[in-house]
Design a binder for these strands. Structure first.
Length: 135
DNA sequence: GCCAACGTTGGC
DNA sequence: GCCAACGTTGGC
């Protein structure tokens, strides 16, 4: 079982939308490195949901609900999408400012590669963020 | 609204 | 295959 972080602009699809839907297909990823990561996810993997834009915070946890599959909205076999399901909303969102203030996160892709939307999450970072988020 | 960082495209 | 120009993302 592995840990990941997925980013999304909440005006496009928010954690509240996932709470409403329960499960959704995470699609629309086109960046090569993000796709490489997305093809590596496995059912049961745990995923942090990060809101970009105004919020800039990790807002909750979801889990991979199925195998990566061709993105049904794209006419390109290289592009994949993956089913995800809601797990829990954080009591307290963990803001980017909080993460930037702690050197533990400085080398992580979330900080180093601002435009990457799918990335692995080292277990140490997972533990720290979920501890902060669960208050 | 601006800009830095990065990815993509297209001419050569 | 290189690189300049351009487009996009996301933080500020």
């Amino acid at each position: 079982m592995a840990f990941w972080l997925f980013k999304q602009e909440p005006d496009c699809y928010s954690f509240a939308d996932l709470e409403r839907d329960g499960e959704t297909l995470w699609d629309g990823v086109t960046n090569a490195l993000a796709l490489k990561h997305l093809r590596s996810v496995r059912p049961g993997d745990q995923v942090l949901f990060y809101h970009t834009g105004r919020e800039k915070a990790v807002v909750g946890v979801m889990e991979i609900a199925g195998e990566p599959q061709p993105d049904p909205k794209q006419d390109n076999e290289k592009l994949v999408a993956v089913p995800v399901r809601m797990v829990k909303r954080f009591v307290k969102p963990v803001t980017l400012a909080t993460l930037k203030a702690d050197p533990l996160f400085a080398e992580w892709e979330l900080i180093r590669l601002a435009r990457l939307s799918v990335m692995p999450c080292p277990e140490e970072i997972w533990e720290r963020i979920t501890a902060l988020g669960e208050g």
